[in-house]
Simulated scan of single mutants.
Amino acid sequence: MTQRPALPLTDSSVGRGRRLLWPAVSAVGATGFVLVAHLVDPNQPGNYPTCPWLALTGTFCPGCGTLRATHALSEGHVLEALQRNPLTVAAFTLMVLGFVRWTRRQWRGEQRMTAAPAWLLYGLFWAIMAFWILRNVPGWTWLSPS
């Protein structure tokens, strides 16, 4: 008796529900993060630990203020979120757009997305570095997560 070779599992042969598993897991994880940031107010002292970078150096890292910005966004206060960390608001916007694109491609069974072009990754890196430096420049308090 000969055994038939297994057919390769392609995106078109996998059911739609199975293709949407990882977008669903990602959505649940993101929702959990936002829910915790909403319910446990980061503006109240003692609810979360201090940023290790801030504690060690006394300067703000690019992520300082992210929890407070997330909390503000979860309450619909976009301007307050921008005051806490404008990079977080921009990153969340790009992540939501990327998530929608990814989910749509998974729904349709299209091939996986390729990695971002190198110029985009380098540009993102340098934008984060510039933000990190500028938010610690004396007098540029509008970038600090106050």
Rank of each mutant, 00 (worst) to 15 (best):
1 M>C: 12
2 T>I: 13
2 T>L: 13
6 A>N: 02
7 L>M: 14
9 L>V: 15
9 L>D: 12
9 L>A: 13
11 D>G: 05
11 D>T: 11
13 S>T: 13
13 S>W: 10
14 V>C: 07
14 V>Q: 06
15 G>V: 04
15 G>Q: 07
17 G>P: 06
17 G>M: 10
17 G>I: 07
18 R>H: 13
20 L>T: 01
22 W>M: 09
23 P>V: 06
24 A>S: 05
27 A>E: 09
27 A>F: 14
30 A>E: 03
31 T>Q: 04
32 G>K: 11
32 G>S: 08
32 G>F: 02
34 V>W: 00
34 V>N: 03
37 A>G: 10
37 A>T: 04
38 H>K: 11
38 H>Q: 10
39 L>I: 07
42 P>N: 02
44 Q>V: 14
45 P>I: 05
46 G>R: 06
49 P>G: 12
50 T>Y: 13
52 P>T: 03
52 P>L: 08
52 P>E: 05
55 A>K: 02
55 A>F: 07
57 T>P: 13
57 T>E: 02
59 T>W: 07
59 T>K: 00
59 T>Y: 09
61 C>I: 04
61 C>A: 03
63 G>C: 12
63 G>H: 01
64 C>I: 06
65 G>C: 00
65 G>S: 01
66 T>I: 11
68 R>E: 08
69 A>N: 08
69 A>Q: 04
69 A>R: 07
69 A>W: 00
71 H>C: 11
71 H>Q: 02
72 A>W: 00
72 A>M: 05
73 L>R: 00
74 S>M: 01
74 S>G: 14
76 G>F: 06
78 V>H: 08
79 L>E: 15
80 E>G: 03
81 A>L: 02
82 L>P: 09
82 L>V: 10
83 Q>K: 10
85 N>L: 13
90 A>F: 13
91 A>C: 06
92 F>L: 02
92 F>C: 03
92 F>T: 10
94 L>C: 09
95 M>V: 15
96 V>P: 03
99 F>N: 00
99 F>S: 00
100 V>A: 15
101 R>M: 02
101 R>D: 00
104 R>Q: 05
105 R>G: 01
106 Q>E: 14
107 W>Q: 08
108 R>A: 14
108 R>I: 11
108 R>L: 15
110 E>P: 06
112 R>Q: 09
113 M>P: 12
114 T>R: 14
116 A>N: 00
116 A>I: 04
117 P>E: 05
118 A>Q: 15
118 A>M: 15
118 A>T: 15
120 L>H: 01
120 L>G: 05
121 L>W: 14
122 Y>P: 03
122 Y>N: 10
124 L>N: 05
125 F>Y: 10
126 W>H: 04
127 A>C: 14
129 M>W: 09
130 A>S: 06
135 R>I: 13
135 R>N: 05
135 R>S: 11
136 N>V: 02
138 P>A: 01
140 W>C: 08
143 L>I: 10
143 L>Y: 00
145 P>G: 05
